[in-house]
């Protein structure tokens, strides 16, 4: 078992992929714009759906409204044109737009003018989405943020696992998973380092402790990379992580399998 890792990518891992896509959607080329909006819809449909569900709409209605939101607001009303990395987080802009959309959608439906939802994205299985169970204490915005944070963490953990596996270090991922991730997600006690040493053929607990530390750092680096893709600059990463932590710390937010690990 090797104990050195470059998992989590190089130090200069900040990328603007997410914002690049958003800014790309400003093009006058319809095909490119539609592709960029589809990308954003794929990234954000779960939080949008959870928000609508928490608003009290049933599953089918949520699907319609989710489609409608991305088509009407992002594609046709060109919310993207207003998006500016210098003016704050895209997540906040989307949440505000969603709030306004729900009000106007309700108005349209009341007036018998329900918008025809053209399918922009394929909404998959919604059974296991992270939905707030304690509805009294969880606002729709909380549900949105919880689903978004879960999705980001899913992406980070999936990439970390893939990186470890591709570097023939699957055992490091297994240690991280059993000693850090599962205890947090399941509320169980971490498996003792000595036990993990015996299972994975590591001689000293100190070495195992180093593996755990390195895995946490790799996880941290990837988390910063993923969050970095959704904010305007690297300076905003810490603030966004703190904001998400505060948003999901409210009691009652409870997942389906909010964060999955295989």
């Amino acid at each position: 078992m090797s104990h050195k890792t470059t998992m989590g990518g190089p130090d200069e891992s900040f990328e603007q992929t997410h914002w690049s896509e958003i800014l790309d959607a400003r093009t006058t080329d319809d095909a490119r714009r539609s592709a960029a909006v589809s990308y954003i819809a794929r990234r954000y449909w779960k939080p949008v759906y959870c928000y609508l569900l928490r608003k009290g709409y049933d599953g089918e209605h949520c699907k319609d409204l989710t489609q409608g939101f991305f088509t009407d607001v992002l594609l046709e009303r060109q919310l993207i044109q207003k998006a500016d990395p210098a003016k704050g987080k895209f997540r906040s802009l989307l949440l505000t737009a969603l709030n306004n959309y729900v009000v106007s959608a309700h108005r349209s439906e009341t007036a018998g003018k329900r918008a025809d939802a053209r399918p922009l994205l394929s909404i998959g299985d919604t059974e296991d989405l992270p939905i707030a169970e304690d509805r009294a204490s969880v606002t729709p915005a909380d549900a949105f943020n919880y689903a978004w944070a879960s999705d980001v963490l899913n992406g980070v953990l999936t990439e970390l696992q893939a990186e470890y596996t591709s570097h023939d270090m699957a055992s490091h991922w297994a240690v991280f998973r059993e000693h850090v991730v599962l205890p947090v997600l399941e509320g169980s006690r971490p498996r003792p380092l000595k036990e993990l040493c015996a299972q994975y053929g590591v001689e000293e607990a100190q070495q195992m402790s180093e593996i755990v530390r390195n895995a946490k750092r790799a996880f941290g680096k990837l988390l910063r990379k993923h969050i970095g893709q959704t904010v305007g600059s690297e300076d905003e990463i810490d603030a966004e992580i703190a904001d998400l932590m505060a948003a999901v710390s409210k009691p009652g937010a409870r997942g389906g399998s909010g964060v999955r690990i295989d």
């Binding site: 992270p130 909380d142 919880y146 944070a149 879960s150 963490l153 980070v156 850090v180 991730v181 947090v184 997600l185 399941e186 509320g187 946490k216 996880f219 941290g220 990837l222 988390l223 910063r224 810490d238 992580i241 703190a242 998400l244 932590m245 505060a246 999901v248 710390s249 409210k250 009691p251 009652g252 937010a253 409870r254 997942g255 389906g256 399998s257 909010g258 964060v259």
Partner: peptide, 15 residues
């Protein structure tokens, strides 16, 4: 099932 506080803990570990 994970709760919001679990998500916050994971975020704190990463941070």
């Amino acid at each position: 099932r994970p709760v919001g506080e679990d998500i916050a803990k994971l975020l704190a570990i990463g941070r």
